[in-house]
Simulated assay, not measured.
Amino acid sequence: MTEIRTPRLLLRRWNDDDLVPLSEINADPEVMRWIGEGSVRDLDETAGDIERWEEEWDDEGFGLFAVELLASGELIGAVGLTVPDVLPEFAHEVAITWRLGRPFWGQGYASEAAHATLEFALQDRGLDRVIAINRVGNDESENVIRKLGMETDRDVTQPEHGHLLRVHTIDLTEYEA
């Protein structure tokens, strides 16, 4: 089983005990406002998310990790790698993404987990390049992306919802430099 430990976090695969805490995170309109069309997700939709992420682990060798606090074992969200289906022109890429519960914002957890995931992508999985996609205006995610050393590639319009998205990239040579 793939696990990553950081000074404060455990990134691991999903288990049955994660469904309710993740569904509570997904039920928060502030958490979900930048994701997809911005709608909250119920318990069944959250179960579908976890199932899809676990299938991606099986199919691709990567996916979204469950993120828990080492000190308490509390699930605080998800971070990981995915093939971005929101933009067909980037369907051949691997994107880093994250979603944390609101009580855990502003404490550096997203940056800590994303940095560990980027290292996993480039060093453990041997990827040459990783992208990040965020909605323009989501300054908090933009800050995490900058901390990872990713560069803006371009802005594109998300076809399904019409949101302006910003695509960022980093490759192995930039990461190791």
Rank of each mutant, 00 (worst) to 15 (best):
R5Q: 08
R5P: 04
R5V: 08
P7D: 05
L9P: 02
L9A: 10
L10I: 15
R13D: 01
R13G: 08
L19E: 06
P21M: 07
L22A: 01
L22W: 06
E24W: 07
E30A: 15
V31C: 10
M32W: 13
R33I: 11
E37G: 15
G38Y: 11
S39A: 14
S39I: 05
R41F: 02
L43P: 06
D44Y: 10
E45V: 02
T46M: 03
A47P: 05
I50L: 09
E54N: 14
E54D: 14
E56A: 09
G61Y: 00
F62P: 05
G63F: 00
L64P: 01
L64V: 03
A66K: 00
A66T: 04
V67I: 15
V67F: 08
L70G: 14
L70I: 13
E74N: 02
G77T: 10
G77L: 11
A78I: 10
L81Y: 01
V83M: 03
V83A: 06
P84S: 07
D85P: 02
L87Q: 00
E89C: 01
A91P: 06
H92Y: 02
E93P: 03
E93T: 13
A95P: 05
A95I: 04
R99S: 13
L100D: 06
R102W: 04
R102V: 14
G108M: 00
H115I: 07
A116C: 10
E119C: 12
A121N: 04
L122R: 03
Q123R: 14
D124A: 13
R125L: 02
L127K: 01
V130C: 00
G137I: 10
D139W: 02
G149F: 06
T152E: 04
D153F: 08
D155C: 01
V156D: 14
V156F: 06
V156Q: 13
T157L: 13
E160D: 11
G162K: 03
G162M: 04
G162C: 06
L164V: 15
L165Y: 00
V167D: 14
H168Y: 12
I170G: 01
D171A: 01
Y175P: 11
A177M: 12
